[in-house]
Design a binder for these strands. Structure first.
Length: 438
RNA sequence: CGGGGCGUAGCUCAGCCUGGUAGAGCGCUAGCUUUGGGAGCUAGAAGCCGGAGGUUCGAAUCCUCUCGCCCCGACCA
């Protein structure tokens, strides 16, 4: 993509409304634009990252055995009356009336809808288990939206629902998803910390929140260092020992932290304290919805079995804020490579110079041919402006070509994260990024 | 939902107290000069001063009402 043609409205100054760093940087880097309080448009650069985050989530859901579907944003109030949540949910739920005076709502979550779908088609014990998920926009009418996309009213969420025959199977589904979450967040360059959680309005008796570590995070976490060291690929979700271990380890947010228990259970050298941002939560809630909504299957012995359910959410749009909170410096964003909007930023320092232009155009074509995602700054701007823009949007590699480099046939490569610079031939530069392209 | 703050050019803000022809910096347009860390000079364009009422000869400025946005708290993916 040529920057001269790209819609990338960068801001040199901090917008007054943005207080926290991720919000400021997303606005300054031209990723989002606010439409109303807590509601944002996603501009091309922001959308590219959103899609990458979404894709990683999708791949790990699929790998965990879940199947993707897509439910609507608008739901009939009827289903929520059936589960009893229509009255319980409060003003956070955006209620709408259609032209026929039917009560509708913009979904804040989808337990009712998915249960309705499953109960309509799943009739036999042979049809279970099932795990179904979708990635869809949700709306929660927060009293006070803030922190940009981290606490918007409209947000993109992955929500998955598991349906099992009995509790042991449902708990295994829970821990399968648990392991998938660890992997998902790690793939984005984050450090996930799973914290035991209350089940809140969703209900149930087993739940974990996933926080990712960020110095600017909203909550304070106290945890056993072993929690972070756990390798999710070794988790056997069906093992009662593993389940017990995970369910009982010490990790708590400040509200639920018990210093005495922390000290009693965790050796001093393993006690950790950090700030985090919540990006996901998993619940096992048994028959809370399947019971009132009559989601049952016929068992082998002609009995009726009420499905055992769990639900699993990831705040996809919120993750962008969390990733930036955990990956930035004074100059701007530092994207982890798997979610970077482009892998390489190619800078022509002297756009008016024919030789520079030729060298850059050539390298740009080769990068594209090699399948490397590249943003090419071909604008006629001052060098400083180009460096600053590239640092701000935080692409992992900056390829710089100026009059000096052209004379020596070298490309200067800057690693955005480490700041290290090296000079390579165009061929070597190409090999550097083409080789490791995912 | 309680408390506080702010709405003036695309962005950051001054002007308001003490009413009298709407400002600055950045950005934008044109030209010239520059060219390795947000360039310089010159000339421009750009605003229903959030909206509605009121007071006044006269309102960005004073009064009333309203809408929007931000911050702290309670609440939350």
């Amino acid at each position: 993509m040529r920057l001269s043609a790209y819609f990338l409205p960068l801001l040199k100054e901090n917008p007054a409304e943005a207080q926290i760093v991720s919000h400021r940087l997303m606005l300054r880097a031209g990723m989002i634009r606010q439409s109303a309080a807590g509601i944002y448009s996603w501009l091309p650069l922001g959308l590219r990252v959103l899609k990458k985050v979404e894709q990683i989530v999708r791949e790990e859901q699929d790998a965990a055995g879940a199947q993707e579907l897509l439910m609507p944003t608008l739901q009939p109030a009827e289903l929520w009356r059936e589960s009893g949540r229509y009255e319980v949910y409060g003003k956070e739920m955006l209620r709408i009336r259609d032209r026929h005076d039917r009560d509708m709502l913009y979904g804040p979550t989808n337990e009712e809808l998915i249960t309705d779908i499953v109960r309509g088609s799943v009739k036999s014990y042979r049809d279970l288990p099932k795990m179904l998920y979708h990635i869809q926009w949700k709306f929660r009418d927060e009293v006070r939206p803030r922190f940009g996309v981290m606490r918007g009213r409209e947000f993109l969420m992955k929500d998955c629902y598991s349906f099992d025959l009995d509790k042991p199977a449902a708990v295994a589904s829970y821990f399968r998803m648990f392991a998938a979450y660890m992997k998902t967040f790690k793939r984005m360059g984050l450090t996930p910390i799973p914290v035991r959680a209350d089940t809140g309005p969703i209900g149930g008796d087993l739940s974990h929140e996933f926080h990712v570590q960020a110095d600017t995070g909203e909550s304070e976490l106290f945890y056993d260092a072993d929690v972070v060291k756990l390798d999710e690929s070794n988790i056997d979700p069906t093992s009662p020992d593993v389940q017990k271990y995970i369910a009982n380890w010490y990790a708590a947010t400040d509200e639920k932290h018990d210093q005495a228990e922390f000290e009693a259970r965790v050796p001093e050298e393993r006690r950790r304290r950090a700030r985090g941002i919540e990006v996901g939560q998993v619940f096992y809630f048994g028959t809370k919805y399947s019971e009132p909504m009559k989601a049952v299957v016929a068992g082998q012995d002609k009995t009726q079995i009420t499905m055992e359910m769990g639900s699993y959410g990831i705040g996809v749009s919120r993750l962008l804020g969390a990733i930036i909170e955990a990956n930035h410096d004074d100059n701007g964003i530092i994207w982890p490579e798997p979610v970077a909007p482009f892998k390489v930023g190619l800078i022509n320092l002297r756009a008016a110079d024919a030789k520079c232009k030729e060298a850059c155009d050539d390298l740009y074509a080769k990068l594209q041919k090699a399948g490397v995602e590249v943003l090419y700054d071909d604008r006629d701007e001052s060098a400083g402006a180009k460096f600053a823009a590239m640092d701000l949007i935080g692409l992992p590699y900056q390829f710089v070509i100026g009059p000096r480099g052209v004379t020596n046939n070298v490309v200067e490569i800057k690693n955005r994260r480490s700041g290290e610079k090296q000079e390579l031939s165009p061929e070597a530069a190409l090999a550097l990024v083409a080789g490791t392209n995912a």
